Amino acid sequence: MKRIIEICCGSYEDALNAYHGGAKRIELNNALHLGGLTPSLATLKLTKKNTNLKIITMVRPRGAGFCYNEIEFEVMKEDAKSLLENGADGIAFGCLNKDGSICIKQTKEMIEIIKSYQGEVVFHRAFDCVE
């Protein structure tokens, strides 16, 4: 199996530094101090414009866990579409139930959206919280 080294970037500046340092793939976030949130479209667009990095973008609307209500999940789906339409190569996300199990319904919906754009699906660190 080929190893992949992915640099976690919390800003456009981080992405540029990773690129100039020789990275080929990044996970693009915002607010790393909260565990990583959805980056802005401007951050994605500038990174795509000025690098040749493979970019997996985080879709997480808030800190404080990975159990999302329907309103938060609607935002996540729209964020995923916008990011993929603007050049993201994939989406990192994770959806859990209150009991710590994987939320199959939300996970399937996100996978369908990501795959409809031929994007790469990454289930992020929410996996570490699974019972």
Score class of each variant (00 low, 15 high):
73 F>N: 10
122 V>W: 01
25 R>D: 13
104 I>N: 13
44 L>C: 03
81 K>T: 04
18 A>L: 08
53 L>E: 02
98 K>E: 15
93 F>M: 01
21 G>H: 02
108 K>F: 11
104 I>Q: 13
16 L>G: 06
71 I>L: 10
15 A>W: 05
18 A>D: 13
97 N>F: 05
101 S>A: 14
2 K>C: 11
33 H>M: 05
77 K>L: 07
63 G>T: 03
77 K>H: 03
81 K>L: 03
88 A>I: 07
39 P>L: 07
95 C>N: 08
86 N>D: 09
93 F>Y: 11
88 A>V: 01
66 F>Y: 13
99 D>C: 14
40 S>Q: 05
49 K>T: 09
44 L>Q: 12
22 G>Q: 05
124 H>F: 08
60 R>F: 05
80 A>K: 00
94 G>C: 14
33 H>L: 11
22 G>Y: 06
32 L>S: 10
108 K>Q: 12
102 I>C: 06
6 E>D: 08
66 F>V: 00
56 I>E: 08
5 I>Y: 15
56 I>C: 01
35 G>I: 02
79 D>F: 07
5 I>Q: 14
67 C>K: 12
21 G>Y: 07
107 T>K: 02
103 C>N: 15
49 K>M: 08
123 F>E: 06
76 M>G: 04
37 L>G: 05
98 K>A: 14
50 N>Q: 11
12 Y>Q: 04
69 N>T: 00
32 L>T: 04
81 K>V: 09
127 F>Q: 13
62 R>P: 06
90 G>Y: 06
52 N>F: 07
110 M>C: 11
40 S>R: 07
121 V>P: 14
126 A>W: 06
82 S>D: 04
